[in-house]
Design a protein around this nucleic acid. Structure first.
Length: 594
RNA sequence: GGCCUCGUAGUUCAACUGGAUAGAAUAUCAGAUUUCGGCUCUGAGGGUUGGAGGUUCGAAUCCUCUCGAGGUCACCA
C-alpha cells in the first residue's frame, strides 16, 4: 500500500469510528507551500455524509490519523482543508525502497489485460512528411510508451495510404517529365523525388486549365476536362484493373517513398511493430459492407451506392460504397480495423492518432463498427490533436509554406550545435559524437515543445524564432540530467550501498525531492488514462526544478558526513534515472554531457 | 446555418478533472557563486480566467446566452 492508499483507508476508518458514517472516496491534493504539511485532505465533500462544521470534522480526522497512522506526524486544519505532516522516516523508507529500481513507476505489461493498438501516422505516399506529421508521430509514439509503462501491451502501427488518385498524379508526371530519374541517379531522397512530381503535375494541370479557359471553357469545366487530369483518372482505373505496367510503376515509386519515410522516422526516433496498407485492407472493408447490407446495417440506394443511416444517432447518412462499387475512405477503415483484430487476437482496443479535422469521421467509423456487432467498438479512441499553425497561418503546399520534416529536424540540430559550441563541456568529443549530441538536443527541444502542450490545443510554430532552450524546455531538462551525471562521475559511490539512515533528519529540499519522486507512478497512470504526454512533461519539469533548487541550497559532494553524502548522491541518481525514464516516455533521450 | 473544439499575465503554457490568495516559463527590473557544470538559483512587478447571467459551502472548470478563433457537415482522403 502506498502512502495515499494508507491515508485514504484510515480517513474512511476515522469517519466510521468517529461519526458512524460511510465515506466512498477521499479527495487529496498537494499541500500549498504557505501551509505546513505534505498532503492535504479536502473535508468539504464529506459534508454530504457527515453533518457539521468542516473545521471540527477535520480536527477529529487529523487526531485519529496521528493516533493510528505511523507516518502521520502532525496536522493542522485551515478552513475545510486538513493538512497532514508526514514523518521523515516515511520518506527515507520510501526512498530506500525505490533507489535501486531502474524502472521505478513502470508497471510490467500484464498478459491478462487486453492489448492496445496505437495507430500513428497515416501518410499519403505522394509527398514527403511535414510538420503536421511530426506532431502526429511524436504524440502517438509517446502515448504508446506511456500506455506500455502503465501496464498494457501495445502494438504500434501505421496505415499507409498507398493508393488513389494522388499517387497516380505523381506517377503520371514522372512518366511525362521524369526522364527515368531515380533516387540513385539524382541523389534525392525517394519521398522528395516523388513529391517533386506531384508539384509538377499541379503546375501542368494549372497551365492546361488556363489553356482551356482561353479556348472558351468555363473555369469549372476546364478543371474537369484538363487532359492531364483525365489521364490520371485513367491511370487509377488501370491500377484498379491490375494493369501490369501501371502496377509496376506504382510499386517502384511507392518503394522510393517508403525508403524516404523510413529514413525520416528513423531520424525522428520512432518505430512501428506492424504496417498496414490501404491497398491491402479495402477489400476486406468491402466484404463487411456486403455483410452489413444483409443484416440491414446498411442500405442500398437506387443508383447502387451503399449508405449507413445514422440519423437516429443524431448524425447524417454516410456513404460506405460508391455507386460504381469502389471503396471510399470509410470502407477501408472498416476493413483495416477488422483486419487488425484478426491479426492480433489479443487486441481489445485501438487508439487512432489523427488530427481533429477528422473527428466526425471517427465518430461515424466507431458507430458503424459497433452496429456491425463488434464488441471492441467501445474501446476505440480517437486521439485527436490540434493543427500546427505557422505565423503566416495554415501550412499550404501550393504556397510553399509547408515545413518539411527532415529540414525541421536538421535545423533544430543545427541550432542546438550553435548553442553548444558556445556553452558546452565537450572536450574530447569527436565531431561525429558532437553531431549525435546536437541531434539529441535539437530533437529533445522539438519533441518537448510539442508534447508539453495538451494535444487538443492548436500549436503556433514559428520556424524563424525556432524553439527556446531555456525555461520549460527539453534542453533545460537534459542539461540538469547531464549535470547530475557529472556529479555522479566524480562521486565514486555505488548506488547499491545501503545505509541505516532511518533516523536521519531530512533537509527540506531533500523532502521535497522525494515527495516529487513519490508522485511518479500516479502521474504515469494519469497520463495513460488521459492519453496525455503533457502530464509527463510537466511532471518532469517540476522534478527538475525541485532538483535545481536542492542543488543550489545543499552541497552533495561536500556534505558534512559520509552518510549524508551517500544519501544525496543516491538521491541525485534516482532523480536522474527518473528524468531519463520520464523522457523515455516522451521519446526523448538524455545526454551524459552537453 | 447544424454539430464539435478552443479562448487564462505582453507572449508560450499550467491548474491534480468542482477546492485554499489562478501557478510556471519567457520578456523586464533587482539580487545570489571561497561550492559539485551560471543553459543554475532567489525575489519584484504583471490577471475582472473573452463578456453576461445561473447552479452551491466553493466555478477557469458544470448549465444558459453572447462575442471571437478554428474545424466539420463530399460518390475527397
Amino acid at each position: 500500500m502506498n502512502l495515499q492508499e494508507t491515508l485514504s483507508h484510515n480517513v474512511k476508518q476515522a469517519i466510521k469510528v468517529v461519526f458512524d458514517a460511510e465515506l466512498q472516496s477521499v479527495e487529496f491534493q498537494a499541500t500549498r507551500k504557505e501551509f505546513a504539511g505534505d498532503i492535504t485532505v479536502v473535508v468539504f465533500p464529506m459534508l454530504r455524509v457527515v453533518k457539521g462544521n468542516p473545521v471540527q470534522i477535520g480536527e477529529q480526522i487529523g487526531q485519529y490519523l496521528v493516533e493510528h497512522v505511523e507516518e502521520v506526524k502532525a496536522f493542522n486544519v485551515v478552513k475545510g482543508f486538513l493538512n497532514i505532516e508526514i514523518s521523515d522516516a516515511h520518506y527515507i523508507n520510501f526512498f530506500n525502497g525505490i533507489k535501486g529500481q531502474s524502472q521505478f513507476g513502470f508497471k510490467t505489461p500484464s498478459s491478462k489485460e487486453k492489448a492496445v493498438m496505437v495507430e500513428y501516422s497515416s501518410p499519403n505516399t505522394n509527398k514527403p512528411l511535414h510538420l503536421g506529421h511530426v506532431r502526429n508521430v511524436i504524440l502517438g509514439y509517446s502515448v504508446s510508451e506511456i500506455l506500455k509503462a502503465s501496464g498494457k501491451n501495445v502494438y504500434k502501427t501505421q496505415i499507409i495510404n498507398d493508393r488513389g488518385i494522388h499517387i497516380c498524379k505523381s506517377m503520371l508526371a514522372w512518366k511525362r517529365f521524369g526522364n527515368e530519374e531515380t533516387p540513385q541517379s539524382s541523389g534525392l531522397k525517394g519521398d522528395k523525388l516523388v513529391g517533386n512530381y506531384y508539384v509538377k503535375f499541379d503546375k501542368e494541370y494549372k497551365v492546361e486549365i488556363q489553356q482551356l479557359i482561353s479556348e472558351g471553357q468555363t473555369e469549372e469545366d476546364a478543371k474537369k476536362n484538363a487532359p492531364i487530369l483525365l489521364e490520371a483518372q485513367q491511370m487509377l482505373l488501370k491500377w484498379e484493373a491490375g494493369d501490369e505496367e501501371v502496377v509496376a510503376l506504382w510499386k517502384m515509386m511507392n518503394g522510393w517513398v517508403y525508403e524516404g519515410f523510413d529514413a525520416t522516422y528513423k531520424s525522428i526516433g520512432v518505430d512501428f511493430d506492424k504496417l498496414y496498407y490501404e491497398s491491402q485492407t479495402y477489400l476486406l472493408g468491402k466484404e463487411f459492407v456486403a455483410e452489413g447490407l444483409k443484416t440491414g446495417v446498411f442500405i442500398k440506394k437506387e443508383d447502387g451506392s451503399v449508405w449507413c443511416d445514422l440519423t437516429e444517432d443524431g448524425l447524417d447518412e454516410k456513404i460506405v460504397l460508391r455507386s460504381d462499387g469502389t471503396a471510399v475512405y470509410m470502407t477501408q477503415d472498416i476493413g483495416t480495423a477488422i483486419q487488425r483484430t484478426k491479426d492480433f487476437p489479443d487486441v481489445g482496443g485501438m487508439v487512432y492518432t489523427v488530427g481533429n479535422e477528422q473527428e466526425y469521421h471517427f465518430q461515424v467509423l466507431f458507430l458503424i463498427i459497433k452496429k456491425l456487432g463488434f464488441e471492441w467498438a467501445d474501446n476505440l479512441y480517437h486521439l485527436s490533436y490540434g493543427m500546427v499553425d505557422l505565423p503566416s497561418g495554415k501550412m499550404k503546399s501550393r504556397e510553399g509554406t509547408v515545413v518539411d520534416a527532415d529540414d525541421l529536424v536538421d535545423e533544430m540540430a543545427q541550432t542546438a550545435g550553435e548553442i553548444s559550441e558556445e556553452l558546452g563541456k565537450l572536450d574530447g568529443y569527436s565531431p561525429e559524437e558532437k553531431q549525435v549530441l546536437y541531434k539529441k538536443i535539437g530533437l529533445g527541444a522539438l519533441k518537448y515543445f510539442i508534447l508539453k502542450v495538451d494535444p487538443r490545443k492548436r500549436i503556433l510554430f514559428d520556424p524563424k524564432e525556432s524553439i527556446d532552450f531555456q525555461g520549460n524546455t527539453g534542453p533545460f531538462i537534459q542539461y540538469t540530467y547531464a549535470r547530475i551525471q557529472s556529479i555522479l562521475r566524480k562521486s565514486n559511490i555505488e548506488d547499491t550501498v545501503t545505509l541505516n539512515n532511518v533516523d536521519m533528519a531530512l533537509h527540506p529540499k531533500e523532502r521535497e525531492l522525494i515527495k516529487q519522486l513519490e508522485l511518479f507512478p500516479e502521474v504515469i497512470q494519469n497520463a495513460a488514462d488521459n492519453y496525455s504526454p503533457a502530464l509527463i512533461a510537466n511532471y518532469t519539469y517540476e522534478l527538475v526544478r525541485e532538483f535545481n533548487s536542492f542543488y543550489q541550497n545543499v552541497s552533495i559532494l561536500g556534505a558534512d558526513t559520509d552518510a549524508e553524502k551517500v544519501f544525496r548522491v543516491q538521491l541525485a541518481q534516482s532523480v536522474a534515472n527518473t528524468i531519463k525514464n520520464a523522457f523515455g516516455l516522451l521519446g526523448i533521450s538524455v545526454p551524459e554531457r552537453m
